[in-house]
Design a protein around this nucleic acid. Structure first.
Length: 592
RNA sequence: GCGCGGAUGGUCUAGUGGUAGGACCUGAGCCUUCCAAGCUCAUGGCCCGGGUUCAAAUCCCGGUCCGCGCACCA
């Protein structure tokens, strides 16, 4: 177990409940299918939430696809069973649960068998065998000691199963991660990359896990959105451009510190963390360095953010080094993203299972000439001599030529086949040593995988943006969302119900929308109420048309900033341009 | 999946075996020359299914969902 949930920074009071209430009331997110009683683990993003989420996805795409020069694809969410046999999800995602008839405790049946008997890989055994083993060894409930012999073992796979087409002849599954959609299409994707390593493929999409108990709002759901990058590299040749990120400062929580009782987080830079060996892999380090400023830009509070290294027991067996991005929410650390060096695990598995080629041809600088021992067996001799074994004999000859040329120097070549020794006259083997020119080799790329959870990030962004303060003695709740991700960028109001003011305000709305800004118009109640309404959904700016606007020669409006409630008067003509510049981060409100 | 607690307008909540009230929000109107003001009016609710009862939002059972703990989290 990690102590990932220990020692949260002492910032922020518990605001999860208030946020959930606000999210429901204002349209960020809410439980799905409420009219039918609701369903666990599924949430709908309302108008505000969908917009915020879309903006976060756009920001991710800008940074991890476009700015890095990576491709983006959009693969199906349902894939056929063999894909998941290859990926390991069909077996590895399978839990065997056994429930104690006395105390009701559920245990992992496969773990019980592995712990208490000499069986080592109980997970791969069929259910009935596990049940037999439990009966045979008279295993008991680890909690209360009651006998478990004869108790049914229940299989629980975290993947949602379905059927493709009529009947159940072609089982399929909803993908438990978006990554497989990329790996499966690798042979074609590498063509689009013109067979050049390194290259990256991104995907933003839904993934599905039939969680036993979804919890904590949209933090752990059964359907969620991931943004993943699979970056394919030549492990021999490719190196990340660390200069771009080496000065990025970050908070790390390495495995070594987690094991200490008084372990603590480490403040360092990408460059020194690599030098000190804290981060093991330069590619992982590179993407941590890209991710940190990005998280900051979309509104994650860097005082409540860290990268935590996986402990060795926590890592998947193929992952050499693995770090999670984590944010702190009401005293708990939640996982926002995982950065794993997956080696050639995924591509090799799919190569084995599909028979397709998951490699990239890497041309040498200079063609290389190598001596290679080859055989060309005389099958008209081997056939009559060995009958049905002739093919196997030929294969063994070829293998032998590869490992021991001297075996072919005698008049007769000895080979072993199923324990028997056979002699083949040397002249019948067609043995030769030839010079071959090789232009390059097929390499299985290694994969670096930054994998982001979007829903959790949206929740974190809202949580970290939540503010309460007082304006003129009145309580105020507002969301300090970054302009780049805020669902609505500007609200436009007439100061009062007045045809002239309203007409002018509607013109401004049209202008701003033409400029591509997300605008809302509001003329209900009084001006203060409208400001508060926009504050609560996190709209960064409000524009108000008053009598000065329509009476003075120069048409001006007030622009009011959300966080400070400060106002400035600006000419209408420059409004769209100025606000667009602010949204793009090229200008600050204070500079106006 | 187990245990404990919960579920009343959009939101937050009061409530008793005799068919539900408030606040906020929302909408209409009045008022209003910049921060949830005031006045009038309006919309809208007892999670679902069974049982007990003359009568159930209330008591009982089951389910669904939510929160917490346990287990689970490739």
């Amino acid at each position: 177990m990690s102590n990932a949930e220990s020692e949260p920074p002492e910032t922020g009071e518990a605001i999860g409940e208030k946020l959930t209430e606000l999210a429901k009331r204002r349209g960020y997110f809410f439980r799905s299918s409420g009219s039918y009683g609701g369903v666990g683990g599924f949430y709908t993003f309302g108008p505000q939430g969908a917009s915020l989420k879309g903006n976060v996805e756009d920001a991710w795409r800008d940074r991890f696809a476009i700015a890095e020069g990576n491709m983006e694809i959009d693969a199906p969410t349902i894939m056929p069973e063999p894909v998941f046999e290859a990926s390991g999800h069909l077996d590895g995602f399978d839990d065997m649960l056994i429930e104690c008839p006395d105390c009701g405790t559920s245990s992992r049946a496969d773990h019980l068998v592995e712990d208490e008997t000499e069986y080592e890989d109980a997970e791969s055994l069929p259910i009935h065998e596990v049940e037999e083993i439990i009966a045979e060894y008279e295993l008991v409930c680890p909690e209360c000691g009651a006998g478990l012999a004869g108790v049914a073992v229940e299989e629980f796979n975290l993947m949602f199963a379905t059927n493709i087409g009529p009947g159940d002849s072609q089982p399929g599954y909803l993908r438990p991660e978006t990554a497989q959609g990329i790996f499966v299409e690798f042979p074609r994707l590498k063509e689009y990359a013109r067979n050049q390593l390194p290259f990256g493929v991104t995907q933003i999409g839904r993934a599905y896990r039939n969680e036993i108990s979804p919890r904590r709002s949209i933090i752990r759901t059964r359907e969620f959105t991931q943004a993943e990058l699979e970056y394919f590299v030549d492990p021999e040749a490719d190196e990340p451009n660390l200069e771009r990120v080496e000065d990025v400062e970050l908070t790390l929580y390495p495995a070594s510190e987690q094991r200490n009782d008084d372990g603590s987080e480490v403040e360092t830079t990408i460059g020194s963390a690599l030098e000190d060996g804290i981060i093991g892999d330069p590619w992982v380090a590179y993407f941590l360095g890209v991710a940190k400023p990005w998280y900051e830009a979309v509104g994650v509070d860097m005082d409540r953010f860290r990268f935590r290294q996986h402990l060795s027991g926590e890592r998947a067996h193929y992952a050499a080094d693995c770090w999670d991005a984590e944010s702190e929410i009401d005293g708990n650390w939640i996982e926002l993203a995982g950065f794993a060096y997956r080696g050639d695990y995924d591509l090799s598995k799919h190569a084995d299972h599909s028979g397709d080629r998951f490699t990239v041809f890497k041309q040498y600088d200079e063609p290389q000439t190598v001596e290679r021992a080859t055989v060309d067996p005389d099958m008209s001799y081997l056939g009559p001599e060995f009958g049905g074994d002739a093919g196997a004999v030929a294969e063994e000859l070829e293998a032998l030529a590869g490992r021991d040329r001297s075996a072919f120097e005698a008049d007769a070549v000895e080979i072993e086949l199923e324990g028997e020794t056979h002699e083949i006259p040397a002249e019948k083997t067609g043995f030769a040593v030839e010079e071959q020119t090789e232009a390059g080799e097929h390499v299985v790329p290694h994969v670096v995988e930054p994998s982001f959870g979007i829903d959790r990030l949206v929740y974190t962004v809202l949580h970290h943006a939540y503010r309460e303060d007082e304006v003129d003695g009145e309580q105020r709740t507002y969301l300090e969302l970054e302009p780049e991700v805020a669902p609505t960028f500007v609200g436009v109001f007439p100061l009062q119900n007045d045809d002239a003011l309203e007409e002018q305000a509607r013109e401004i709305v049209a202008d701003l929308r033409d400029a591509g800004l997300s605008v809302t118009y509001d003329d209900s109640g009084n001006i203060g109420r409208r400001y508060r309404r926009q504050d609560e959904v996190g709209t960064p700016f409000c524009v108000t048309v008053d009598y000065e606007t329509i009476e003075n020669e120069e048409t001006t409006v007030t622009v009011r900033e959300r966080d400070t409630t400060a106002q400035k008067r600006l000419p209408v003509g420059d409004l769209a341009e100025t606000l667009s510049a602010i949204r793009a981060g090229e200008m600050a409100f204070e500079e106006l």
